[in-house]
């Protein structure tokens, strides 16, 4: 049996950690409340945006527009792919970061040449992970100047990011752009998702949960389809990035809360077990002492 002092020290250190995890639990639960509110406010927009664009696409006549250019002249191994990956700024949030990084890794593995992949990582954890990644010699390119936090997403930040990738797409520095984020399906189910942002194609729209499709004749565009698309697509990109940021932030807080809650619970369990051990050790020490005293006394008789 371990000695009493050791157990005592162990219990004390667990108590210290318990305080930390408990505080983090409280912080993240209050942050979650805020994030949830933002999510509830943004979700109608996010889904409606995808749904509306989808239906707009159905009414759009065929056109040649910069953002629709699929650049088929570029062979698959030379295509430059950009990924906007949304991770957390901090760890200690369960498997949240791990899942999104693994998902991104899988996506990267699918592309023929990994050095043609460009990563725009939001959040410190992801940025650190991809810059120090040394799996093999070919590494994806990580934009070092792309420094955005994932805390409290704002529309302004989404606008800047959208502008950056659209510019790169226009200048042919990127041929495809994707957004990778964690979607909050229900409060307990989170799912990593990838949305193709550019080039804009009619096919890649996932249906919104309540998406209903109607077949209608071609709509008219004022002043011209090209002109409208030139406005609409940056707006769409911004909306999608913002929505993804809000979803991801909410997921992060949710998983941190869950992780901290379970950490607190298991710390309490450990303290319980250890105090049992401690009491046993204490009791056996006392028993032993008594036995010694008694046997000592009896030997004197």
């Amino acid at each position: 049996m371990a000695n009493m002092r050791e157990i005592r020290e162990r219990i004390d250190s667990i108590k210290q950690i318990l305080k930390i995890t408990n505080a983090m639990y409280l912080i993240s639960s209050s942050k979650l409340k805020k994030a949830r509110k933002a999510l509830d406010a943004t979700e109608p927009y996010f889904y409606k945006l995808q749904e509306t664009i989808e239906s707009v696409m159905e009414h759009t006549p065929h056109m040649r527009q910069m953002y629709f250019d699929r650049r088929l002249d570029i062979p698959p191994e030379k295509r430059k792919k950009g990924y906007i990956v949304i991770t957390a700024d901090k760890g200690l949030c369960g498997s949240y970061n791990h899942n999104i990084l693994k998902f991104t890794e899988n996506e990267l593995a699918k592309s023929p040449d990994i050095s043609n992949c460009y990563l725009f990582v939001l959040g410190h954890v992801g940025r650190m992970y991809f810059t120090s990644r040394l799996k093999n010699s070919s590494k994806p390119f990580v934009d070092g100047e792309f420094l955005y936090t994932t805390q409290n997403p704002t529309l302004y930040r989404a606008m800047e990011i959208a502008k950056l990738v659209l510019d790169k797409f226009e200048n042919r520095e990127l041929d495809e752009v994707y957004v990778i984020y964690t979607d909050m399906v229900t409060s307990n189910v989170q799912e990593e998702r990838m949305i193709q942002l550019l080039p804009f194609s009619r096919r890649h729209f996932g249906k919104a949960p309540d998406g209903t499709m109607k077949k209608l004749p071609k709509a008219s565009f004022l002043p011209s389809p090209e002109e409208v698309m030139a406005h609409l697509i940056p707006d769409y990109a911004k909306g999608i990035i913002y929505g993804a940021m809000v979803e991801a932030f909410c997921c992060e807080q949710q998983s941190r809360m869950t992780a901290m809650d379970s950490a607190t619970t298991s710390a309490k369990d450990m303290i319980k077990q250890l105090s049992l051990l401690y009491n046993r050790a204490r009791q056996s020490a006392i028993t032993q002492e008594i036995t010694e005293v008694v046997s000592g006394a009896s030997s004197l008789e």
């Binding site: 707009v56 009414h59 759009t60 209608l216 004749p217 071609k218 709509a219 008219s220 565009f221 004022l222 002043p223 002109e227 409208v228 406005h231 609409l232």
Partner: peptide, 16 residues
């Protein structure tokens, strides 16, 4: 983007 636009019920399909 190109001026004021009035919409009533039964407007033709339009995106702008």
């Amino acid at each position: 983007i190109d001026g004021l636009l009035g919409i009533m019920a039964g407007h033709e399909p339009l995106v702008t």
